[in-house]
Amino acid sequence: MSDQEAKPSTEDLGDKKEGEYIKLKVIGQDSSEIHFKVKMTTHLKKLKESYCQRQGVPMNSLRFLFEGQRIADNHTPKELGMEEEDVIEVYQEQTGGHSTV
């Protein structure tokens, strides 16, 4: 019986991991920090939209990076291997420009 009891508790931990929340720091170019608590399985588009709304800027005017890689709207913290207190960097999107060649 103890084996049966242990097995469901392991499964519960697996389920808990799926719905687990982590805190992420979003740091802007001006070094301002906003902290977000997100589920591991939530699409990061929600975090990006919330950040842009707080900053009063359109979402397409900023780019969000985690460990140097651009974050897509459909990425989740779990897919990117994010952990508690990880940092997302935000930069002004640069458009235009010309070749110097």
Rank of each mutant, 00 (worst) to 15 (best):
Q69H: 07
E67M: 14
D73A: 00
L47N: 02
F64H: 07
E20W: 05
I34P: 04
R70A: 09
E18P: 11
T10E: 06
Q53D: 14
S31H: 00
Q4W: 07
S31V: 01
L24Y: 01
E33K: 08
I71F: 00
G56L: 05
H43C: 15
Q94V: 13
E93N: 10
D12M: 00
Y91H: 11
S31M: 00
A72W: 00
P58A: 09
H43M: 11
I27E: 00
L65K: 00
K17E: 14
S9A: 13
E18Y: 10
P8Y: 13
G19Y: 10
V101Q: 07
V57P: 01
E85W: 15
E11F: 06
V87E: 11
E49K: 08
G97Y: 03
D3V: 08
K46A: 11
P58C: 01
E89N: 11
T76N: 01
V57I: 14
S9Q: 11
K45D: 09
H35N: 10
R70K: 08
F64R: 03
K78E: 13
E79H: 00
Q69M: 01
N74L: 13
K17M: 10
I88G: 03
H75E: 12
M82Y: 03
K16L: 10
V57G: 04
M40V: 13
L44H: 02
T76S: 09
K39W: 09
S9C: 12
G97M: 00
V26Q: 05
E49V: 08
T42Q: 13
T95A: 12
E49M: 09
E33I: 14
G28W: 07
G96A: 01
G97P: 00
S32F: 06
D30V: 03
K37G: 04
M82I: 01
I22T: 14
K23R: 15
L62P: 02
D12L: 10
S31C: 09
L65T: 13
P58D: 02
K39H: 07
V101S: 09
K16R: 12
E67K: 05
K17P: 10
K7N: 09
M1T: 08
V101W: 07
D3R: 09
E93K: 06
D3M: 06
G81M: 00
Y51A: 02
I27T: 07
L62N: 05
T95D: 00
E33S: 07
V57Q: 06
